[in-house]
């Protein structure tokens, strides 16, 4: 959790806004630090989190979260965190010799080539409210939805899935959804661009990490654009200007500053 980003977003660990869909984008840089922020923020705030990690292994997230002051293993044991390790599930799916486990595998749609219903039922089951829980609100975090595109899921099915997740988690359970999509403007990836545009249309907050247009810099790692409100809802698009901050990622936290006000130049 980066306190500076929290203050920029007006969020605190005491009260958590509910029913929000946050989209994280990146272009020409790696926006994964935003995922780590939201994971540790919601865990600290005492929310029940379902984390669908498709990019990295559990140990990676766990070690980074430890640096940010959150213990993922204990959160998992206490039942606060439900962690889906996509890499492991996919190799189990390909090389596992247990047909029964295959049916319950959340990624089994990749083998059957059907829709993403298994993954959706996994998510909704993980976040369904149950009696005797002290956690605040359910949160779904998806690290890199665009990986599913690379695995051959058609973008429309993916959008359906996201819509179901939003309807269930945001509206029905009054929770939050956070998801990361890699930017695709420069590469001309039409599917990814479609996904990003559609999701940004549905989201309340967009955090967009961009590499500097002037190229790589040691002191400034990129700029973060914060769009609030439904961005592409016609009327608001012209009115809401994005807030732009530059950032520098350090070992355990990220510093944000106004453009051109890096500590290296002042």
């Amino acid at each position: 959790m980066f306190p500076e980003l929290n203050s920029l977003l007006g969020a605190g660990t005491d009260t958590v806004e509910r029913g929000k869909f946050t989209l994280l984008c990146d272009s020409k840089t790696d926006g994964s630090f935003l995922v780590h922020h939201f994971l540790s923020y919601y865990l600290r705030a005492g929310c029940r989190v379902c984390f669908v990690a498709l990019v990295q292994s559990f140990s990676h997230y766990s070690i980074v979260a430890q640096k940010l002051g959150v213990n993922l293993s204990s959160a998992k044991d206490e039942g606060q965190l439900v962690f889906l390790e996509g890499l492991r599930s996919y190799t189990d799916l390909l090389f596992g010799d247990n047909p029964e486990a295959e049916v319950t595998n959340p990624l089994c749609f990749l083998r059957a080539g059907s829709d993403l219903k298994p993954l959706y039922s996994f998510v909704s089951a993980a976040l369904a409210p149950s009696a005797g829980q002290s956690w605040k609100c359910p949160v779904l975090i998806l690290d890199d939805v665009s990986v599913l595109l690379s695995l051959g899921v058609p973008p429309l099915q993916l959008l359906d899935f996201m819509h179901y997740c939003r309807a269930t988690v945001c509206t029905q359970y009054q929770g939050n959804v956070v998801c990361l999509v890699h930017g695709a403007e420069e590469s001309g990836d039409e599917e990814k661009e479609l996904l990003r545009r559609s999701l940004s249309h549905q989201s309340q907050v967009i955090l967009w990490a961009e590499g500097l247009s002037s190229g790589f810099c040691k002191e400034v790692h990129g700029q973060l654009k914060i769009f609030r409100g439904a961005v592409s809802s016609g009327k608001k698009r012209g009115q809401t200007q994005p807030e732009i901050y530059q950032y520098k990622i350090q070992d355990k936290h990220v510093t944000f500053f106004a453009r051109g006000l890096s500590a290296a130049v002042l």
Partner: peptide, 20 residues
């Protein structure tokens, strides 16, 4: 067009193998 994802699927599975 179904073969378009063969390379990326392979890489993802390989990544899973290597990580473990």
């Amino acid at each position: 067009p179904e073969n378009q994802h063969s390379l990326t699927r392979f890489l993802y599975a390989l990544r899973g193998l290597l990580r473990t």
